[in-house]
Structures are given as C-alpha cells and as structure tokens.
Simulated assay, not measured.
Amino acid sequence: MIESFETFLAVAAAGNFSEVARRQAVAVSSVTRKIDALEAELGSKLFHRSPRRLALTDAGEQFLPRARRILGELAGAKEALHADDGDPRGLLTVTAPTAFGRRHVVSALASFLQRYPEIEVDLHLIDQIVDLSEQRMDVAIRIGLLPDSDLRATTLAQVRLVTCASPAYLARAGHPRSPEELLHHDCITVATPPAPGFVWRYPGVNRNQPLPVRGRYRTDDKDGMLQAALHGLGVMHIATWVACDHLRSGELVALFPEEFEAAPAAGLPAIHAVRLPGRSHATKARLFIDHLRAEIGDTPWWDRLQPGST
C-alpha cells in the first residue's frame, strides 16, 4: 500500500506514467498496475486517462493531500523511532531566495553538514514561492510578510534597510545630509512596485510616506542593484544582509544617522524559516532551522558588522 501511495504521488506530480517509470527504472506496466491496485482498494478512479493526457479526478484531487499527509506522518514516525539510535542521517531539502541563499544559507549549510556528517542536503535557490507540499521540500527560507497558512514559521531576523552609495558617487554628486535631499540624487530603484516594507520611507520624513525618489537605473535583481551602486550609478536603499560586506570594507558608505535607519517595527518584513507540519524529515528540518538561527544570532551578524558597531 505504501508503494502505491508513493507511486500515486509521483504520477500526480509528473503527469504521466512514462516519466515515473523512467525515474524508478521499471516498466510502465508496473506503474499502471500499482495505480490500478490503489484505485481498486479505494473504490474510486484517481486519474482521467486518455492517449493525450493524464489528469486527477475529483476523487484524486481530494485524496492527494491525504496521501501526502499519511506518507509524511509515517516517515516522521520512523524518524522519531530511530532518532535516538545515532546521529541524524538522510536527505534534507531546502529552498531559499537566490541572493540570500548564496550569501547566508550556503555558509550555514557548510557548518551544518560538518556537524552532522550523515545528513545530505539538496539546496534549491529560487526567487519564486515554492509549495513545500507539492515540491517535497523540508525547509523554505522566505523574506517578507507571511500569509496565513498551516506552515510552521520561525523568525530568523528582522529586515533592516540601509541607504548607501559608493565613495565615487558621493565625490561626484555630493553627500545627501537628509532623506529629503535624495529627491535631487540618482537613486537605484526597482523596476516593479516594491513590497510595502521595502519602500524609501524614513521616520518623520514626508509625513512618514514613501519618498518619490527617481533615477536612471532600475532593476528587480538585488545583485544588480548592488553592482550598480558599487560602480557609482547612484544611491541604493537595500537590506543590510545584501550590503554588509561592502559597508564594512568601505566600498559603500551608509548615508544617514541611526534614527533614519531604525529597525522595522513589528508587522514589517522579516526573514523566516518555514516547514510543513507532518512532513517527513521533521527532525532534520528542526535541527537545521535551529542551526541557522544560531548562526545568524539574536542580532543578525550582518548588522553587527556595520561600521561603528560592536
């Protein structure tokens, strides 16, 4: 029965029998027999089958989340039974936004794997939101406001923004002494409307509304913004976790005093690690989230590395 459940999930994800048979290195008839047996056991057709397409029936759609939950709970129960038998082992799947993953998740995974030599990790760096259940992911790193869901979320850090520019740009265009002066500077902005927590807003400035800054260079890529600022194209307003190394080295200069760059209040964007309750590998997921949280620290290390910080 368990093999039939696993085959059902694989066929539902792949959308055809042939791909599942190829991955499992078995004949297509072996896959179809398992689905036939499961449908007979359940007394319901799970797939609409035709020469051109394979699609879930209404019964299949209803059964899909239950099958995932059953397999997840079974795997979690097995993992719990063997948790005390020795070091954690097996595969952990993690997804994270590309820029944050390259800068901060990979280094945390390196020390995590050194600590737990029997664990393997698949890391997927992608900027789109991944459905943990559908993609069989154990942990996702997400930045921003979390919608209501059944995911278990652990806050890793609040997002803090910094306004900065290169010494070359400041030597050419002058050093803005207040946020209002940014209206007369080239500002590196996003090509699409930013999330509410990432606008150019400063306490007590412009009635606490976003400043309508402008510039000749726009991009939705954080590394594209960073490189543009380093090359002197303008002023950048970005998360400290992106710019921290360059602020520390002096390649970028923070423009405003602390009162203008205060940490966001509650309800504004944060960095979270989320996992799906009942998902297999729950023990490894919790271990990694705890490890990542410890690596970042109560005050994120990228904020402790700012000039003048301790």
Results as ranks from 00 to 15, higher is better:
Glu3Asn: 14
Ser4Phe: 04
Phe5Asn: 00
Phe5Ser: 01
Glu6His: 02
Ala14Gly: 07
Gly15Trp: 05
Ser18Lys: 07
Ser18Phe: 05
Ser29Gln: 09
Val31Ile: 15
Thr32Ile: 13
Asp36Phe: 07
Ala37His: 01
Ala37Phe: 01
Ala37Asp: 09
Leu38Gln: 01
Leu38Thr: 05
Ala40Asn: 10
Glu41Phe: 08
Leu42Cys: 07
Gly43Pro: 03
Ser44Ala: 14
Phe47Arg: 01
Arg49Ala: 07
Ser50Tyr: 05
Ala55Gly: 07
Arg66Asp: 09
Arg66Tyr: 15
Arg68Cys: 03
Leu74Tyr: 10
Leu74Glu: 09
Ala75Met: 12
Lys78Gln: 13
Ala83Thr: 12
Ala83Leu: 11
Gly86Asp: 13
Asp87Ser: 15
Pro88Asn: 08
Pro88Thr: 13
Arg89Leu: 08
Gly90Leu: 04
Arg102Gly: 06
Arg103Glu: 10
Leu109Pro: 00
Arg115Gln: 15
Tyr116Lys: 03
Glu118His: 14
Glu120Pro: 00
Val121Phe: 02
Asp131Met: 07
Asp131Trp: 07
Asp131Ile: 08
Glu134Gln: 11
Glu134Leu: 09
Arg136Gln: 12
Asp138Thr: 06
Val139Ser: 01
Gly144Asn: 04
Leu145Trp: 10
Pro147Tyr: 07
Leu151Arg: 04
Ala153His: 04
Ala153Met: 09
Thr154Asn: 04
Thr154Phe: 05
Cys164Phe: 00
Cys164Met: 03
Ala165His: 01
Pro167Ser: 04
Ala168Leu: 08
Tyr169Glu: 01
Leu170Trp: 00
Ala171Pro: 06
Ala173Tyr: 08
His175Val: 11
Arg177Tyr: 08
Glu180Leu: 14
Glu180Ala: 14
Glu181Pro: 05
Leu183Val: 13
His184Gln: 15
His185Lys: 11
Thr192Gln: 12
Pro193Gly: 12
Ala195Lys: 06
Val199Trp: 01
Arg201Pro: 00
Arg201Asp: 03
Tyr202Leu: 01
Tyr202Arg: 00
Gly204Ile: 12
Gln209Glu: 15
Gly215Thr: 02
Arg216Leu: 11
Arg216Glu: 10
Tyr217Asn: 01
Asp220Ala: 13
Lys222Leu: 14
Gly224Phe: 04
Met225Ala: 11
Leu226Ile: 10
Ala228Arg: 00
Ala229Cys: 12
Ala229Gln: 02
Gly232Tyr: 06
Leu233Arg: 05
Val235Phe: 02
Val235Cys: 05
His237Pro: 04
His237Asp: 07
Ile238Thr: 06
Ala239Pro: 01
Ala243Glu: 01
Cys244Pro: 00
Asp245Gly: 04
Gly250Met: 05
Glu251Thr: 03
Glu261Arg: 00
Ala262Met: 09
Pro264Leu: 14
Ala266Glu: 14
Gly267Leu: 11
Gly267Asn: 13
Gly267Pro: 08
Leu268Gln: 15
Leu268Met: 15
Ala270Phe: 12
His272Gln: 13
His272Thr: 14
Ala273Val: 08
Val274Met: 15
Pro277Gln: 13
Lys284Tyr: 04
Asp290Trp: 05
Asp290Asn: 15
His291Gln: 07
Arg293Gly: 09
Ala294Asp: 08
Gly297Phe: 06
Asp298His: 11
Asp298Ile: 10
Pro300Ile: 11
Arg304Glu: 15
Pro307Thr: 14
Ser309Asp: 09
Thr310Arg: 12
Thr310Asp: 15
